[in-house]
Nucleic acid binder design. Structure first.
Length: 213
DNA sequence: CAGTGGATCCACT
DNA sequence: GTGGATCCACTGT
């Protein structure tokens, strides 16, 4: 499992690279959420890359709006959006600044503070499901729009930050089409995950929903 | 395990 | 008015 957990913060330079370089490199890294009840630490096992200007699947594809404003800012900050009327999802903005690229955090393993996440994820049948899926991950870490724009590279005991952790060897990284993305015919194999990890979410193709009458 | 439909509301057109 | 970077309960095999 995890031999020695490196708690060094990830430097800004880590995120100030092309998103396709950053995304696979995030696997095995740690996100720490500091709540009033205590810290929750999550080891990233699955992510997806979104590249603003060239990517129809990206929220930034149609330009800057109040919602996606953080994506256009400096790398290393957190972009949180609200979707499907009830869920939040969490991204880390990548470089170069202003390009509006970001990595969606899709799944992870809770390695500290699981007793806190279980209270928010009552439907999880076991601990592997606590953060298996982007909205579940955000729910487990108690992340919502109030944390949009947080600097994950800031020093100190901030509400949300990214740590070096233990990077995954390249031969353990797998990639494939992104999950549930409209306007992406699966042409972008920009979903990255750790091979054989039980906390990785199942793949689902995008399915447009019928309108209710 | 696979497939289906409901929940729920904000951003954007 | 439209549709979504989802999850969950439920059905049938």
């Amino acid at each position: 499992m995890i031999a020695t957990l490196d708690r060094t913060p990830l430097p800004r330079a880590f995120f100030d690279r092309p998103v396709l370089d950053v995304a696979p490199d995030l696997l095995g890294r740690i996100v720490v959420r500091t709540t009033p009840d205590g810290p929750i630490a999550l080891r990233l096992t699955e992510v997806e890359a979104y590249d603003g200007p060239s990517d129809p699947g990206s929220h930034a594809y149609r330009g800057r709006t109040p919602r996606n404003d953080v994506m256009f800012g400096p790398p290393g900050h957190v972009y949180v959006y609200f979707t499907y009327g009830m869920w939040h999802c969490m991204n880390l903005v990548c470089g170069p600044g202003g390009r509006a690229s970001a990595v969606l955090l899709r799944a992870g393993e809770i390695i500290e503070g699981a007793e806190l996440t279980r209270k928010r994820r009552l439907s999880a049948r076991n601990d592997k499901e606590l953060a298996k899926g982007p909205a579940r991950l955000a729910t487990a870490l108690d992340v919502d729009r109030s944390l949009d724009g947080t600097d994950a590279c800031a020093a100190g005991d901030t509400p949300l930050r990214a740590l070096t952790g233990t990077p995954v060897p390249p031969d353990q990284v797998r990639n494939g089409p992104r999950t549930g993305v409209a306007g992406d015919g699966g042409v972008h194999p920009w979903r990255f995950w750790i091979a054989n990890d039980p906390t990785v979410s199942p793949y689902r193709a995008h399915t447009p929903r019928r309108r209710r009458s």
